[in-house]
Design a protein around this nucleic acid. Structure first.
Lengths: 346, 346
DNA sequence: GCAATTTGTGCACGCGGGTGCAAGAACCAA
DNA sequence: TTGGTTCTTGCACCCGCGTGCACAAATTGC
């Protein structure tokens, strides 16, 4: 029996994906390392050998094992994506964009659900055990964690906070400039002639919300010398926003009623719109206008027609890739500028 | 210099996560294999050794490397999740549930975006390269692929179609019984007294939709001896559903107007509701009622109050874990039964 | 046609840890 | 105290591939 036939038999027998470079080498009549070279671009290999190896690989259905490669090179080409809020459709957009763009550049994405508080540090630990090249945080309650988890996070190659600012020095933040964004929104609201704004914010402990709410307050004060009112909800959830807005509006004398509700994101904005319409029986935007943030797909539907602010997710994802590649040009990554999408809600 | 001090120095120097069992062993004064045992439950190790190892590990911040472990055991504890439609919020629910439950049972999830046609087979190939224990397909356009990709998929340990039936013998399907589900919905519609249903379906090439639409048609015919009308859209997108429903209703003489639209899922139902309200100017449910499928979070909001059908995702995810664990009790996995959620839309 | 290059190829060793076995230590009853 | 158990521990070898180097082959120049 020739080596080649033997290799085929072996391959057939171990159908469960146990075809190694050795098998291919045997079939192709070269050494294992030559097989290696055939799959590594920029490697020095003769056309003859390459052809032989490729033919053998096709025949056996060989593909290099990434696990072993990762172990050997200490580079996993893996990024773990920590998500702590699966109720916001915007997460879906970010996931879609990130997975697609990372994939295009050779990285796979490990999706980790950190809904439970303690999950975050466990996830970071896990990320380390899997040797991920970076951990990307898309979420809201990470800022506290990020700090406490930092010590374990030290061991994670790169800690990246995506679409949110982070004051933690151990992390890299890729996000929009909230100042610019809120300035755009505030100017829009002012230009539209609204006079009595209400700001609907998310959790109070988060820096990003502080950024948006406070920027808005500051700008408004600068213009009109009055501090706009605000309400907040403990989580970014339309139902909570609905209830809070309802509660707020119901108790309010008509003359004090806001003429626009500026929301920290679209999820809250939708809750607010629902409250205005179905709880208080008013019209949007005639009685109360509403603005959002994120421009999730639902925002464009006829039921909301929400004026919102779209972040350049694609560009941000590509910035992430740049970081992963290590082509760190030292550019600032927390000053992305998005676009205001003007619709009928305000 | 003692071995212990040396180990510490080494650990300090190679701060980048290069602490191996050897380092710990040196510090603890035992062999590397004893360190191994300390981290493997059910391993035979003395309390003394365990304590020493744990103390040393804590000091050095050692955690076993999963990559190396996967390589050695040929078990990655990794599942790749192939998603081809990031526009449906229901995906978010499934992802949340799957990642959480898989994690709880020791598996990590690789999220793969297969929006592009060719991605599916590439993803399967990649899954194999990463030695995933299983590839889970959550999507709509996999049935054709699954077949063609089967040859490359053979090499993936397990191919699981989640929340959708699959006629491909190489795959395991974990899903609701569409017959039972549609029977429940149909009976509900009949009991409510609707007489002129319209079925709004998704892509025509997919078996699951055939299941739902055809079951509905069959049941309705059995009851009233007339074939209900139906329309369809090429993708599960509210905007498409809106347009198609609008187009359909606009051209229709009032006397032929349906009194209920039964939709293949909530995304389509929302589009239909929007069309009824904002394009045609009718009321839901007074003029036309609507039912959905999936019971996505948005369905319960005051703007839709959608009557829908909730799949037992948690139980289904747990069934997936059972399969992964290999405790295959041979139970049928494509006969899950969900719950009809009755709301005001129908 | 021979030396000087320029490829091309094979190999030892390593990545970090798992497995099964065998030898040593500790324990028990007689 | 001794023979036999049971519990611990160490070790050789393996998982599949990457790296750097040395040697062989092909190419070039004169």
């Amino acid at each position: 029996m020739t080596n080649a036939t033997e290799a085929i038999l072996v391959a057939d027998k171990t159908n469960l994906g146990a075809i190694t470079a050795d098998d291919v080498a045997r079939l192709a009549g070269v050494s294992r390392w030559t097989v290696n070279r055939a799959f590594k671009k920029d490697a020095s290999i003769s056309q003859t050998s390459l052809d032989k190896v490729m033919a053998a690989s096709d025949q056996l259905g060989y593909v290099p094992d990434l696990l072993a490669a990762s172990l050997a090179t200490n580079k996993s080409n893996l990024v773990s994506l920590l998500v702590d809020d699966f109720s916001n459709p915007h997460k879906l957009i970010m996931m879609e964009r990130l997975t697609r763009i990372l994939r295009k550049n050779g990285w796979d994405t490990l999706l980790v659900n950190t809904n439970n508080e303690e999950d975050a540090s466990a996830a970071l630990l896990n990320a380390r055990q899997r040797r991920v090249d970076a951990a990307v945080l898309i979420g809201i309650s990470f800022n506290d964690h990020a700090l406490s988890a930092a010590h374990s996070a030290q061991r994670v190659n790169k800690l990246i906070v995506f679409a949110r600012t982070s004051e933690n020095p151990d992390t890299i933040s890729i996000c929009c400039d909230d100042q610019i964004a809120m300035t755009t929104i505030t100017n829009y609201v002012i230009e539209k002639g609204y006079k009595r704004p209400l700001f609907l914010a998310g959790p109070q402990t988060i820096s990003a919300h502080l950024g948006r709410k406070e920027t808005f307050s500051r700008l408004w004060e600068a213009q009109f010398n009055v501090t706009p009112d605000f309400i907040s909800v403990p989580i970014y959830d339309p139902v909570r926003a609905y209830e809070r807005t309802k509660e707020y509006l119901e108790d309010l004398p008509i003359e004090m009623r806001p003429d626009v509700i500026v929301c920290e994101n679209d999820a809250l904005a939708m809750g607010a719109i629902n409250a205005i319409r179905y709880a208080v029986g008013l019209r949007v935007p005639q009685d109360i206008a509403v603005t959002g943030f994120d421009d999730i797909p639902q925002a464009s539907g006829p039921e909301y027609r929400l004026t919102s602010y779209r972040q350049p997710i694609t560009a941000m994802a590509e910035a992430l890739v740049t970081i992963l590649k290590g082509d760190d040009t030292g550019e600032t990554l927390d000053k992305f500028v998005g676009t205001l999408i003007s619709r009928e809600s305000a």
